[in-house]
């Protein structure tokens, strides 16, 4: 029990390792918080899916510094994000913007899902129609007479099979 509690305490005490160096942090806590919310939204363009807030890459450090410089100069969140998009394109935003160029990204999964649903529906309808045909084709008068004749022949000659077996 004691051990478990100790492990839990350790787990709770563990803070995530920060990529941000102490000397980067702004002295104004309000501006620092703003800088952190911005850097968490910006992609480190030389990393794989990491924000510049998380990355140790040189470029990420340089970009963090530029973000803090802009924040100190009085820029808001939108302005700093726009500043980075102007230089690195939409890719620099971890959350892709919703605009005609990114429609495929936003709608693509739903289109695939709808297509899959349509194919599944079609598939089951085809299967059901094969298993239980809805309309039985009617015999023509000539077919009916011939079928009756054949059935009468089988019923009328019960020994037909026995006779065939003999050479």
């Amino acid at each position: 029990m004691k051990r478990a509690l100790f492990a839990l305490a350790l787990l709770l005490a563990a803070a995530p390792a920060l990529a941000v160096n102490p000397d980067e942090i702004l002295s104004d806590p309000g501006l620092e918080a703003l800088a952190r919310t911005i850097t968490r939204q910006l992609r480190c363009v030389v990393c794989q899916n990491q924000s510049i807030d998380d990355s140790e890459a040189n470029l990420a450090r340089d970009m963090r510094r530029v973000v803090r410089t802009r924040v100190l100069a009085g820029d808001g969140e939108r302005q700093v994000l726009a500043f980075m998009v102007a230089r690195y394109g939409d890719f620099v935003l971890l959350d892709p913007p919703f605009k005609p160029k990114t429609y495929a990204l936003w709608f693509g999964p739903w289109v695939v899902l709808a297509l899959a649903g349509m194919i599944a529906l079609l598939w089951f309808r085809v299967k059901r129609s094969v298993a239980a045909p809805t309309s039985v084709p009617q015999l023509s008068a000539a077919e009916r007479t011939r079928l009756d004749a054949l059935l009468a022949e089988i019923d009328g000659e019960p020994h037909a099979r026995g006779r065939e077996r003999k050479p």
């Binding site: 040189n58 470029l59 340089d62 690195y88 394109g89």
Partner: peptide, 13 residues
């Protein structure tokens, strides 16, 4: 020296 102009140019490396 501090790469700030490189960032203005959108340089990644």
């Amino acid at each position: 020296r501090d790469a700030s102009v490189s960032i203005d140019w959108g340089v990644t490396g």
